[in-house]
Amino acid sequence: MITHRDVEAAENRIAGHIRTTPVTLADPGTFGAGTVHLKLEYLQYTGSFKARGAFNRVLAAAETGMLSPEGVIAASGGNAGLAVAYAARTLGQQAVVYVPTTAPKVKVDKLHKLGATVVQVGNEYADAYEAATKKAADTGALFCHAYDQPEICAGAGTLGLELFDQLDGALDTVFVAVGGGGLLAGVAAALENRVQVVAVEPETIPTLHSALAAGEPVDVDVSGIAADSLGARRVGDIAFEVVRRAGVQSLLVTDQAIIDARRTLWDHHRVVVEHGTAAALAALTTGAYVPGAGERIAVLLCGANTSLTDLG
């Protein structure tokens, strides 16, 4: 479980290690709502919000003496591994990153460029996770979870604090794409009792939706256009508890809606993001969420480690 206080502590800890990413106002009426701001977090170091949690995890471990000479280990569909590799290199640590064989080449190539040792295992994130946790246990290296550790979630939540400050609190609703739920947990904790948080996920990977229906996190099948970035098999325990506490709304969107939303961002703003990132916007472009009169909305564009060749 994390709270607003944990996110504030993370914000102080990672100051100077991450970029403050810009916010831009969408063209009026483009997304069927009066005022929509786009938080351009894909401009963060390594191309996604994940750098925030990675720095918080490694720096917090350094404070408590948990860092090992063996360095750090992560399991990732790509973005979390990039963030951990970058944070490790910046802080003088060696990183080993386990990814599924289905991880996009653009992400694997970036991992190598960041100096990480890359191990490809299995077809899903869950396979990479199993191998990575075993290696961390065997070697004593610091394991950095992609989405379900308090430091990871709290670090991600600094995005919510930053956005709220940039808009001087003039924000009613924020849309967040969900895979394992680390970003959702952090943002919901950061904005609890101040801003409505709406979680959006693909119909083909309904980790949060299924957990809420079952009353606990459960495994789901992983498939679809956004599986490379939102491909966790189940939502994290931290995210699930924060969602229930904060009353987060959950919405599902189709793969075609995600593709169309991603194309809309390019057509109207010349912004190219990952399919998983576009899921957050798809809630507006499809009418899955209908804003109220005067509602002030922000959409988190959280990652862009993708290829122009599949913009289509």
Score class of each variant (00 low, 15 high):
residue 66 M to K: 15
residue 78 G to W: 00
residue 80 A to N: 08
residue 64 T to Q: 14
residue 60 A to C: 13
residue 48 S to F: 07
residue 87 A to C: 11
residue 50 K to C: 04
residue 73 I to D: 07
residue 81 G to H: 05
residue 84 V to K: 02
residue 73 I to C: 06
residue 80 A to E: 04
residue 90 T to E: 12
residue 43 L to N: 06
residue 45 Y to D: 09
residue 56 N to H: 13
residue 52 R to W: 10
residue 56 N to Q: 12
residue 58 V to F: 01
residue 76 S to W: 00
residue 74 A to C: 15
residue 59 L to T: 09
residue 74 A to S: 15
residue 64 T to L: 12
residue 48 S to G: 12
residue 67 L to M: 12
residue 69 P to G: 10
residue 44 Q to H: 10
residue 53 G to P: 06
residue 76 S to H: 06
residue 78 G to N: 06
residue 77 G to M: 01
residue 44 Q to E: 11
residue 60 A to Q: 08
residue 47 G to H: 07
residue 43 L to T: 13
residue 65 G to I: 14
residue 55 F to N: 03
residue 72 V to I: 12
residue 88 A to Q: 04
residue 55 F to A: 03
residue 87 A to I: 03
residue 81 G to S: 08
residue 87 A to Y: 06
residue 88 A to M: 07
residue 75 A to V: 13
residue 66 M to P: 06
residue 54 A to I: 04
residue 68 S to R: 01
residue 78 G to R: 02
residue 64 T to W: 03
residue 49 F to E: 01
residue 78 G to L: 04
residue 50 K to G: 01
residue 81 G to T: 05
residue 90 T to P: 01
residue 58 V to D: 06
residue 56 N to F: 07
residue 81 G to Y: 00
residue 50 K to V: 02
residue 53 G to H: 02
residue 65 G to W: 11
residue 52 R to I: 08
residue 89 R to V: 07
residue 55 F to R: 04
residue 57 R to H: 14
residue 65 G to P: 03
residue 69 P to V: 10
residue 49 F to D: 00
residue 49 F to I: 03
residue 76 S to L: 09
residue 87 A to E: 04
residue 75 A to S: 15
residue 45 Y to H: 14
residue 79 N to T: 06
residue 56 N to Y: 08
residue 47 G to V: 01
residue 49 F to Q: 05
residue 63 E to Q: 15
residue 43 L to C: 08
residue 69 P to T: 09
residue 43 L to V: 08
residue 60 A to V: 14
residue 64 T to E: 13
residue 79 N to S: 10
residue 47 G to S: 12
residue 66 M to N: 15
residue 57 R to A: 15
residue 86 Y to I: 02
residue 62 A to M: 15
residue 85 A to K: 02
residue 83 A to T: 07
residue 66 M to Q: 15
residue 89 R to K: 14
residue 84 V to Y: 00
residue 45 Y to M: 11
residue 46 T to P: 04
residue 75 A to R: 04
residue 72 V to Q: 01
residue 49 F to R: 05
residue 90 T to A: 14
residue 63 E to P: 08
residue 82 L to Y: 07
residue 82 L to K: 00
residue 45 Y to C: 05
residue 89 R to P: 05
residue 50 K to Q: 12
residue 73 I to E: 03
residue 66 M to Y: 13
residue 67 L to W: 03
residue 59 L to P: 03
residue 75 A to I: 11
residue 82 L to P: 04
residue 50 K to S: 07
